[in-house]
Amino acid sequence: MVFFLQNIINALQWGSFYAMIALGYSMVYSILMLFNFAHGDIFMVGAYIGFGVATGLVTLSATGFIALPGWVILVLTILLSMFLTSFVGMIVERVGYRPLRDAPRASAAITGLMIGIILETGNLALMGARRVSFPPLIESVTYNIGGVFVTNKKILIVVVSLAFMLALHLFVQRTRYGMAMRAMAFDFVVVPLMGVPVNTIARLTFAIGSALAAVAGILFGLAYPVLDPYMGIVFGWKAFVAAILGGRGSIMGATLAGFLLGFIEIFVAMIFPSTLRDLIAYSIILLILVFRPHGFFGEPYSARLRL
């Protein structure tokens, strides 16, 4: 039982990363009907930007010029990195995808892969091949709750992720920008007839998705402090799987599927040798998709209309 609870906590943490990244895939897909295959690498860039901001603030703090406590640095790192990474997303949209709005979807997919490679190798050129380690920022504290070990970082990661997901949900449901996103998800073509500038909405969607990926990157850096330029690839693909499993374009679906993926991976590893983890975990997901090809919340066929 204790072992079981322990793994639930691990699964929640792992699922938070997947869910946060999957949201970016899903939001972009829902309004533009394209998968931004560079999104995993935007997560990586977000982690590195977080690394840069955090290191900078720690150094600044160490000079004694303005001594900031670790948690303040963490909050500032998250906010600043979200802001900076959102520009990466907006540039990717403007340069990579907007010119291809009416091109075949395959072109957009290839573009995404190429942008991903550019971000990876660009990082390699800029930072060198060495791995960098994310500054700890907050002291790790382990609580023993009836034999279950929980670290303050794990709690922080899950709570911060859930808070951002809730904020996103409220944004999409309550603001006029969110309303425009929902409208674009339903019928892209007529949205301009409502006086809505679709490019602004597309740019905003990329910005939000990238900002969330940056949060995931920083939280990941807190838990697993070693960053490398290719860290976004596997995460990106798995989060993409979560986005598909959730139902293309469904925010709720992406969130739930992200957590489900975390649970499946952790619990498979609990039973089977860890070398078999992904083999078994993704076979399970393949099976789910065989029986539910449109995912949990997706529509069985495209309900979208074209002019």
Partner: peptide, 14 residues
């Protein structure tokens, strides 16, 4: 997928 009111509100976006 939007309510009647939301459809009207969306049209006032700009």
């Amino acid at each position: 997928n939007l309510t009647v009111l939301e459809n009207l509100q969306l049209a006032t976006f700009a």
